[in-house]
Simulated assay, not measured.
Amino acid sequence: MPLLRDAALTAAFDRGAGRYDRLVALNPGYHAQLRRSARRLRLPDGGAGRRVLDLGCGTGASTAALAAVLPAAEIVGVDASAGMLERARAKRWPDRVSFVHAPAEELGRAGVHGPFDAVLAAYLFRNLTGPDAVLRAVRDLLAPGGRLAVHEYALGGRRADRLVWDAVCRGVILPLGSATGDRALYRHLWRSVAAFDTAPAFAARLRRAGFEDVRVLPLPGWQTGVTHTFVGRRTAGGTGGAR
């Protein structure tokens, strides 16, 4: 079975949006891990005067992490799935948080323009048909010296990491997907991680896209070796996108 891509994947997320929050709540530390990645952006003063893009915001879990860690930042959440975005918008948010319906590949067409001081992308890049093009677009949206944090399932490269991921998928993720009628989406989750870059390979992809000071930071708990935060910075000599 091929991976879901583009419109097919968006449709699967639309169908699964109503059950998504309940399922991810079963993942120990899910929200705490997102807050950890948000903190790894290292924006000062609670984000005061800063503009942050939450790319692939889904139902708003990553947006909530940013809002908690950066209580003074302007946050723009973007997602391609209308169903997921509907769930996000239905939650209570401060006025400094807004949402835009757009694929990651079409931000400018949807009116999402830089410069942003930081971008968080959680569980996004392994789902993209053209991750390199989106990374370059994100780089161009960042202000000079702006920071990117990618929170992603990317296996560490050891055989043990793949065994842990396969065991979690066979024992938890696929049975839950079957029970809720979302088996295709959660099978995609399993296979997309196995097919995606290892952590060192994704770090190299970030460097090729023009990010500097790239670091690969592990996450604690059962996800060690399975999920990482990748952080990088746009060169301070670059120019951000026009507002």
Rank of each mutant, 00 (worst) to 15 (best):
Ala17Arg: 12
Ala17Gln: 12
Gly18Asn: 12
Gly18Trp: 04
Gly18His: 04
Gly18Ser: 12
Gly18Ile: 12
Gly18Ala: 15
Arg19Ser: 15
Arg19Gln: 14
Arg19Ile: 07
Arg19His: 13
Tyr20Gly: 07
Tyr20Glu: 02
Tyr20Leu: 05
Tyr20His: 05
Asp21Arg: 06
Arg22Ile: 02
Arg22Pro: 00
Leu23Glu: 10
Leu23Asp: 07
Leu23Thr: 12
Val24Gly: 03
Val24Gln: 12
Ala25Gly: 05
Ala25Ile: 08
Ala25Tyr: 01
Ala25Pro: 01
Leu26Gln: 14
Leu26Gly: 14
Leu26Thr: 14
Leu26Trp: 08
Leu26Ser: 13
Leu26Cys: 07
Asn27Cys: 09
Asn27Lys: 06
Pro28Met: 11
Pro28Ala: 08
Gly29Ala: 07
Gly29Trp: 02
Tyr30Thr: 02
Tyr30Glu: 07
Tyr30Pro: 00
His31Leu: 14
His31Trp: 00
His31Ile: 03
His31Phe: 09
Ala32Trp: 10
Ala32His: 09
Ala32Asn: 02
Gln33Arg: 13
Arg36Asn: 09
Arg36Ile: 00
Ser37Tyr: 00
Ser37Asp: 04
Ala38Asp: 01
Ala38Val: 05
Ala38Lys: 03
Ala38Gly: 07
Ala38Pro: 02
Arg39Pro: 03
Arg40Ala: 13
Leu43Thr: 05
Leu43Lys: 07
Leu43Phe: 05
Pro44Ile: 12
Pro44Asn: 10
Asp45Gln: 15
Asp45Lys: 13
Gly46Tyr: 10
Gly46Ser: 10
Gly47Val: 11
Gly47Gln: 11
Gly47Asp: 12
Gly47Met: 09
Ala48Pro: 03
Ala48Ser: 14
Gly49Ile: 10
Gly49Pro: 09
Gly49Ala: 10
Arg50Glu: 10
Arg50Val: 03
Arg50Trp: 01
Arg51Asp: 01
Arg51Met: 06
Val52Asn: 07
Val52Met: 04
Val52Lys: 10
Leu53Cys: 06
Asp54Gly: 09
Asp54Thr: 10
Asp54Tyr: 01
Leu55Phe: 07
Leu55Trp: 00
Gly56Lys: 02
Gly56Asp: 08
Gly56Asn: 05
Gly56Cys: 04
Gly58His: 11
Gly58Met: 06
Gly58Ser: 14
Thr59Ser: 14
Thr59Gln: 12
Gly60Cys: 10
Gly60Tyr: 07
Gly60Leu: 09
Gly60Gln: 07
Gly60Glu: 09
Gly60Val: 02
Ala61Tyr: 00
Ser62Lys: 01
Ser62Ile: 11
Ser62Pro: 03
Ser62Cys: 10
Thr63Val: 11
Thr63Pro: 06
Thr63Ile: 08
Thr63Asn: 04
Ala64Met: 03
Ala64Asn: 07
Ala64Val: 00
Ala64Tyr: 05
